[in-house]
Amino acid sequence: MSTDIAVHSPAAEMSVGERQQYASVLADANMIPKAFQKNPANIFVAIEYGNALGIAPIVALNEINVINGTPSLSASMMASLARSAGHRVRTRNEDDGSAVCEIIRADDPEFTHTSVWDQKKAQGAGLWGKGHWAKDPATMLRWRAISECVRMACPEVLGGLKYTVEEVIEFTSTGPSSSGPAPKATTTRKQKAEPETVSAPMPAPSNRDWLAELDQCATAQDIRNLWKACADAGELTDDLKSAFTSAGTALTAAQNQPQNETEVVDGVLIDEQGEIHEEGAA
């Protein structure tokens, strides 16, 4: 189909040294995702994953993400890989609000693999009403139906990258959005109905796009303020912490470089209060 984005990767024809040099060139660009800027090692790894899947390096940088050391694919990339392998992928949102993905394998055209996600299923998984699920539930249901159906119908096209970014964040997140304080209260006071009825409700989703706001931060203080606002909203996941830290590193390097062209900043740390501390400056 014309919408497929999987292509033969020219990087597969490069030597290891050429791929390393190519990754270094890309790392200096500001048009690639922020997590890869000034990070040629991560770019090199993403290109290697792209080679395994047969996709171009620039596509790999936008479609392959590594969250807490776990690589992941976008749901749209999963569907594209399935279609490129010759399988039929059909998705739709029903009038009842559910999302459906159907896959008919090229080698088994008589059988249809089907995955359905609706509000009840998302609530059972603890997803409904959180983050992007609050902003655009129809799209999130469709992405989840696609990733589930591709894993079930044609897992061989994924090259071992079985989960989407959202799914990996869900698996690895230890922040308030994944569990919250409620389980502790119900565990210790299970037999007391009154404390449960008067306990403070969970805060409503802020509906703020934290990554978009991070892109607008011009100073380290801006990042501190955004970190605190995100934490106060109960939406500071490990993935957002990593993004804030990476942005802080880039800002610190940019601010220090004009003063001493030989200065190298290894990184910064951001503590749980959102304070940025320089370390390793030489």
Rank of each mutant, 00 (worst) to 15 (best):
G160L: 09
Q21F: 13
G54M: 01
E167A: 04
T164K: 05
L214R: 13
A99N: 10
A23P: 09
K130T: 13
I270K: 01
G129V: 02
K184H: 11
E102A: 12
L161Y: 10
K38F: 12
D108M: 12
G54R: 04
A212I: 12
A12I: 06
D215K: 15
S173P: 05
P57C: 03
R105I: 02
V165I: 04
S115K: 12
Q37T: 00
L81H: 04
G234L: 09
L236P: 04
N65V: 07
M77S: 10
I169W: 01
W128T: 12
G97M: 04
S147Q: 02
V89P: 07
A281H: 09
V198D: 12
L236T: 01
V59Y: 02
A56S: 06
I43Q: 02
K135A: 02
E194P: 09
W128C: 01
R144T: 10
D215W: 13
A218F: 10
T219W: 08
L158V: 03
L214I: 12
E156M: 04
S242T: 01
N207P: 06
A23N: 08
Y163K: 08
W128H: 13
G69K: 09
D271Q: 00
G69D: 07
L141Y: 15
V150I: 09
V66A: 07
A35I: 00
F171M: 10
G131S: 10
I103E: 06
V16L: 14
A75C: 06
G159Q: 05
A134G: 05
S199T: 15
L61S: 03
W227M: 08
P258W: 00
W128I: 05
A247G: 03
K121Y: 02
L214N: 13
S72C: 06
G234C: 09
T139H: 10
G180T: 06
L81F: 07
A12S: 08
T172M: 10
I43S: 02
N207M: 12
T188M: 13
I64P: 01
G160S: 06
A27K: 07
D239K: 05
D215S: 15
R92V: 14
T114K: 07
L214K: 15
S2C: 10
G17S: 10
M152C: 06
T112A: 13
I43M: 01
A29K: 00
V265A: 11
Q37I: 00
Q123F: 05
L127V: 01
P10V: 11
F44G: 15
A185R: 11
Q21W: 03
D108S: 14
A138Q: 14
V165T: 03
A60H: 00
R144H: 09
A6V: 08
R92K: 15
T219D: 04
S72N: 04
L226V: 07
A218L: 11
G248T: 00
V59M: 09
D95T: 11
E110M: 01
V45L: 10
E63F: 03
P109I: 05
G160D: 03
H87M: 05
E213W: 14
T112N: 12
G17Y: 13
P201F: 10
A182E: 07
E196M: 15
H87I: 04
E213S: 13
A138M: 14
F44M: 13
N42C: 00
